[in-house]
């Protein structure tokens, strides 16, 4: 199995074919909670990427040391460490961002995407592959967050990265800035990706 794997394929699968949000539908909590603006979405994506990459490297390095019956608890300890580091750093260097993201930074620890990658990939592969896999998944996750955050920011506030794009008379869609807007938009985006997938299948037949 390992002979046929290529780095580029392992990297790209996380971005598109096995995208953690659009295909695997993992990590919905941060996906819905903090994506009301593009900046928040990207900040969340970067924080998650840091945790995912850090813990994947560590788990892959220690994969022979970690005893199997306690592996989940060990992964959680490792993940929680990186999450706390991210939490403190964001609070120290950007208090405004920390106020926006609030408790959801700490909640990265229960993001099933991260634990899922440790269990399914990093604990069975070499460090090189683990890095490639984690970066692919992290980019895929951040991309999905960005898609949702950008659409919600454009419709909910009429801005993109904080700069207005519709002029001053824009009527904001209040619902898009609120959690229900997250659910609706995510539903639409999943619908769109499923439709793309079906079209591809239809074309292949």
């Amino acid at each position: 199995m390992s002979a046929t794997k290529s780095y580029s394929e392992e990297f790209l699968k996380g971005i598109w074919k096995e995208n953690p949000v659009f295909i695997q539908v993992l990590g919905m909590c941060p996906m819905l909670a903090v994506t009301n603006t593009a900046v928040n979405a990207i900040a969340m994506g970067v924080a998650t990427a840091f945790v995912l990459l850090g813990s994947s490297i560590l788990v892959s390095l220690l994969r022979k040391v970690i005893a199997k019956p306690v592996r989940i608890s060990t992964y959680i300890v490792i993940i929680a460490t990186f999450v706390t580091v991210a939490d403190y750093s964001i609070e120290a260097f950007s208090p405004a961002l920390h106020r926006e993201l609030g408790a959801f930074i700490a909640l990265i620890v229960v993001n099933c995407l991260i634990l899922g990658r440790q269990e399914a990939y990093s604990s069975k592969n070499t460090v090189g592959f683990a890095i490639v896999d984690a970066s692919g998944m992290a980019i895929g996750f951040a991309f999905a967050l960005f898609c949702l955050g950008a659409t919600r920011e454009i419709l909910g506030f009429g801005t993109f990265f904080g700069s207005p794009i519709f002029g001053e008379h824009f009527e904001p869609w209040v619902i898009m800035a609120l959690p229900p807007g997250g659910f609706l938009m995510l539903g639409f985006i999943l619908l769109f990706f499923n439709w793309l997938e079906q079209r591809k299948k239809g074309a292949a037949v």
């Binding site: 040391v65 970690i66 005893a67 019956p69 306690v70 608890s73 060990t74 300890v77 490792i78 929680a80």
Partner: peptide, 12 residues
């Protein structure tokens, strides 16, 4: 088992 978790906790 105890050692694995203990060391992980210590490093953390």
């Amino acid at each position: 088992l105890v050692l694995t978790l203990g060391i992980a906790g210590l490093i953390s």
